[in-house]
Simulated assay, not measured.
Amino acid sequence: MAERRPYPSDLSDARWALIEPVPAAWRAERRRSALNIGRPPEHDLREIMNAILYVDRTGVQWRYLPHDFPPWETCYGYFAKWQKDRVFAQLTGVLRRLLRQQEGQVAEPSACVIDAQSVKTSTSVPAAGQGTDAAKKVVGRKRSIVTDTLGLLLAVLVTAASVQDSAAGTHLVDQVAASHPVIRKVWVDGGYRQHLVEHAATLGINMEIVQRTPGTRGFTPLPKRWTVERTYGWLMFHRRLARDYETLPARSEAMIHLAMADLMARRLTGEATISWHDSISQDQTPIPG
């Protein structure tokens, strides 16, 4: 079979070298634990990852994957298995540590930022998994993320939009305290309540609520917190995240981890991220940040 023409979302050799160890270790472990090893895998891991990135980057439905990728059923099957086994979260962690070290930081952060974003959902999302964010007037889901001070993802939680920021924040603070025990400082906005500050204190984390200056109108970057807002902007380079299309919240979280992994891999290798309008002009714009 002739080699297919590459898509802009395809992994370069340099980015695949960074990403390959994680899915390769997953496949090796699956084969070791199988009762009957059987025939070797039919499809190349790199092509499967390229197909999943294509979905995340372009927003196309799985059934609309171009035919020169492996069958869509195979690609979706791998995505579902990798989500369940937290392969995307592992990949985010590996790349984040590498990027922090490249930026002259220690591998594990000591401070972080939490923020939430409400987004509309597609018809594939069950009504029971949606809600209304009264403050934002959005019916759908809420993405709550934790980033380090460079804006790199530490944790993500997807809930109904009606879930209060503090409720999601409690879950995320517990998760961060368990997986990143050196964190001692976290910044949040005024949507988070005092009881969350007190809960964080019981975990040895100093939580600071960064308030807007009274009388300020329009968008104004807030000290310390602007980095997490910039991260949401980075993630929007992936059209699959412009709306929540995933039936399961855990699949939404996996798509966010994958988008961040893609961004970090490009930043590590110095490659450009093509924005939506650049697909027309063919100009390549360096990754923000």
Rank of each mutant, 00 (worst) to 15 (best):
T92A: 15
V158S: 06
A2K: 06
V138C: 00
K185A: 04
W62Y: 03
T227P: 00
W16M: 09
E29N: 09
D44Q: 11
I48N: 02
T227R: 12
L258H: 11
R46H: 09
L53W: 05
Y245G: 00
R184L: 05
G233E: 02
T149E: 04
T227N: 04
D44S: 11
A28Y: 05
D283G: 01
R96I: 02
G77N: 03
L45Q: 07
V188F: 02
Q211G: 01
G218C: 14
P126C: 09
A250W: 00
L235Y: 03
A155D: 15
Q284C: 09
A111F: 01
I114Y: 14
W226A: 10
I52L: 11
P23K: 13
A34S: 14
T132H: 14
Q282S: 07
I274F: 00
Q90N: 05
T121K: 05
T227V: 15
Y78S: 00
G233I: 01
T202E: 15
P181T: 08
V210E: 02
V173C: 13
K84Q: 10
T58M: 05
P71N: 08
V113A: 13
A25M: 13
Y7G: 01
L152F: 12
S33G: 07
T170F: 12
T273F: 06
T58H: 07
D68R: 09
G204C: 12
S275I: 08
T231Y: 00
L152Q: 09
R217T: 15
A127P: 00
E20Y: 04
